[in-house]
Simulated assay, not measured.
Amino acid sequence: MKSKYKGIAFDMDNTLLRSHIDFPLMKAETFRFLASQGILPEDFPLALHTTATLIQAAVRTSAMSAALMEEMWSTVSRHEWIGMEGAELEPGAAKLLEELHGRFHLAVVTNNACQAAHKALSDHQILHFFDHIVGREMVNSLKPSPDGFLYLLNAYPDTEPQEWLSVGDAWIDGKASEQAGMTFIAYQTELEHMNKAGVFPEGWIGHIRDILQFI
């Protein structure tokens, strides 16, 4: 039976690749920098934020100059590069992509830098499966903003949002996907945590190849 989906968008970290990015430390160091520059207050509710939403809050202030922005991103990039060292493919990911390639539009939507994403996917010999790698330089706002997924929809004007399936491990993936009108499948994450963030996935999978049951 023909699938109702035309495209599949994957998150990268801990969805396609088992990276070792220390997200709590990255968030803490980013916040320390922003607070030290007076961009965010010391009593900022850090526990309620990811690095991405922390950065969005900083960007919305009038104190964020281009120089400070560059320094902030250097902190984030350092953690990304360190975390990608020794990263491994999720079990079954390469075989899955081989099966899907040519049948669906395949894309990666990540908050990582484009260069880091291309290198990580190339190092694991899966870059060629994807039509688009949407990194942070290509959007105005990071996930949980839907910008990355809206970029894909603009790239494929012959598709509708409901013809895309999105797969990711974090609530920000789900929030961004749902706001773009795409169906979201949660990968190896606690649904209770997602629900508390206002994200209600269409389904949950424990192995990346289980996505086949939805298409």
Results as ranks from 00 to 15, higher is better:
Arg136Met: 13
His128Asp: 15
Phe149Ser: 10
Lys119Thr: 13
Glu190Leu: 10
Ala176Val: 06
Leu127Arg: 15
Asp147Ala: 07
Met84His: 11
Lys119Ser: 13
Ala186Asp: 06
Val134Gly: 00
Leu97Met: 06
Met138Val: 07
Glu137Lys: 00
Ser166Ile: 13
Gly86Asn: 03
Arg78Gly: 15
Ser19Leu: 01
Ile21Met: 08
Gln115Trp: 11
Ile208Phe: 06
Asn111Met: 06
Leu40Ala: 05
Val109His: 03
Asp169Glu: 14
Ile215Ala: 04
Ile205Asn: 03
Ala107Met: 06
Ser145Asp: 13
Val134Glu: 02
Asp173Glu: 08
Glu160Val: 04
Cys114Val: 14
Glu42Thr: 10
Ser62Gln: 13
Gln115Thr: 12
Arg103Asp: 11
Ala57Phe: 08
Trp171His: 04
Thr15Arg: 05
Val59Ile: 14
Gly38Gln: 10
Phe44Asn: 00
Ile8Lys: 12
Met69Pro: 00
Pro41Glu: 02
Ala87Gly: 02
Val108Ala: 01
Met194Tyr: 15
His207Leu: 00
Glu80Arg: 00
Lys196Tyr: 12
Tyr151Ile: 01
Phe31Met: 00
Val108Asn: 01
Met64Trp: 10
Thr30Glu: 10
Glu99Cys: 03
Glu163Pro: 04
Arg103Thr: 14
Gly168Asp: 14
Glu29Ala: 11
Ser166Tyr: 14
Ala58Gly: 14
Met1Thr: 11
Pro45Glu: 05
Ala87Asn: 12
Ile215Val: 15
Met69Thr: 04
Ala155His: 01
Gly203Tyr: 00
Ala28Gln: 15
Glu202Cys: 01
